[in-house]
Amino acid sequence: MEQLTLPENFFFGAAMSGPQTEGGWNVGGKLENLWDTWSMEDIGAFHNRVGSYVGNDFMRRYKEDLELLKGLGLNSYRTSIQWSRLLDEDGNINPEGAAWYHELFRASKEAGIEVFVNLYHFDMPTYLFRRGGWQNREVCEAYANYAYKAFCEFGKEIRYWFTFNEPIVEPENRYWHPIWYPQHHSFQEACEVQYNISIAHALAVANYHRAVAEGHMLDDARIGMICNFSPSYTKEDPSEADLEALRMNDGLTNRWWLDLVTKGELPEDVIATLQELGIKLPIRPYDDQVLSSGVVDWIGCNYYQPCRVQAPSRDRDEWGNPLFAEPYVWPERVMNES
């Protein structure tokens, strides 16, 4: 059998996150986050009733887990720092939380495994959510402070950074579709959150460059964003309405983030359509200057599936939210054929 080898400097790794794996939800000065809150209020919503309390018990098992990763031939993994573990309610470093991440990064280096660090994996501290969460501009500022504190604390240990994982998911799942706690059904809220996450990202990238200028980061450090891009398609012989559905679906879920991280701006055509529909974005004077800081060094891409859409059969859903598109079932689709 021919032996295949990976190119030099190729990262072969795995992905995890703090809220999914760490456990230890209330130890070491960690604050409650939304996954903890949801676990306490409705543990039945979680598979096998395993909420945030245990995760994968990574805080206790990290050494053996790193051995498993190494045994699989991996040379890297991506995880996240939990905002609710690293900082206290005053926005200052929680020493016990920082110590845990220092130990994890030390052990990873000892195992010969590079760590890619993401700063936010849908795990808003609950006390900030109760102040409005991403709908509150002050929470964006709090996130920027958290990012800066993380850069300064771990900048000489971590080379590869990301501001957000899959930023489209939280507006959709928490504020529009009734999936995640607190299961809101408001497209208006979803758009406010999507806009302010964009602002928070740009503020964090600006603070990354500040940390670089102050000498806190490794010389070859990089900053990016991880997006779950779903390429948008429609029918082979589309109507004008189908093409309009394609434009808005792609604009909201893909181009929005691509324009932010490559141009430092948001797609004007999407913003204009939202405003025509009466959606009020929390735009402030000089936000274009804020967003201009959002350009990154690289982009993470999580790919799950394409998104096939067509013109909607109605203008509004059952909660009164605007409908831009409906799923299109491609007649020639195939999946998991052996």
Results as ranks from 00 to 15, higher is better:
D250N: 15
G28V: 07
V54L: 15
D269Q: 13
E337R: 07
E138I: 12
E192H: 09
R333P: 00
M124E: 14
W35R: 05
F187G: 03
R85G: 01
N173G: 10
S239C: 05
G13H: 05
V290F: 02
M59W: 10
Y328C: 05
M225S: 10
E114C: 07
R49A: 15
G44C: 03
P171A: 04
M16F: 15
C307Q: 14
L260N: 12
M1Y: 10
L274P: 10
N56I: 00
L243G: 13
L31E: 07
Q275E: 15
G91M: 01
N173I: 06
P306K: 03
D287H: 14
H177R: 08
A311V: 06
Q135P: 01
A245E: 11
E170P: 14
Y181M: 10
Y120V: 13
A190W: 01
E236D: 12
E32R: 09
D269G: 08
K156I: 00
L128E: 06
M59F: 03
D123Y: 12
D219V: 11
L34N: 13
I197H: 06
W83T: 02
W161L: 02
L252N: 02
A272P: 04
K109I: 00
W83D: 02
W38P: 10
I226Y: 05
Q194S: 02
T79E: 06
D297Q: 02
A325N: 14
R78K: 11
K149D: 00
Q289F: 11
F324M: 02
S76D: 09
G224E: 11
E2N: 13
S186F: 08
D57M: 04
A245D: 09
W134P: 13
L243P: 12
D237K: 14
Y120D: 12
F151Y: 12
G71A: 15
A107C: 01
Y53E: 14
L281P: 06
I226G: 09
F46A: 09
R130M: 10
F12R: 11
G55Y: 09
Y181A: 13
T37W: 01
V270I: 15
A142E: 15
T273W: 03
E236T: 13
H184T: 02
E103L: 06
F105D: 01
W330I: 03
P322E: 04
A245Q: 10
N48V: 05
F10H: 04
G28N: 15
Y175G: 01
R333Y: 02
K263F: 04
S198F: 07
L246R: 12
Y77K: 08
G55P: 10
I279P: 13
E67S: 13
Y62R: 03
L246T: 10
I43Q: 13
N228A: 12
Y77D: 08
G251C: 05
E276I: 06
Y181H: 14
N321W: 00
T5A: 04
T273P: 00
K109P: 00
P7Q: 11
C191Q: 10
Y181Q: 09
P19S: 08
R247P: 02
D250K: 10
I81Y: 04
M225F: 01
N165G: 04
Y120K: 12
V295M: 01
Y143H: 09
F164Q: 05
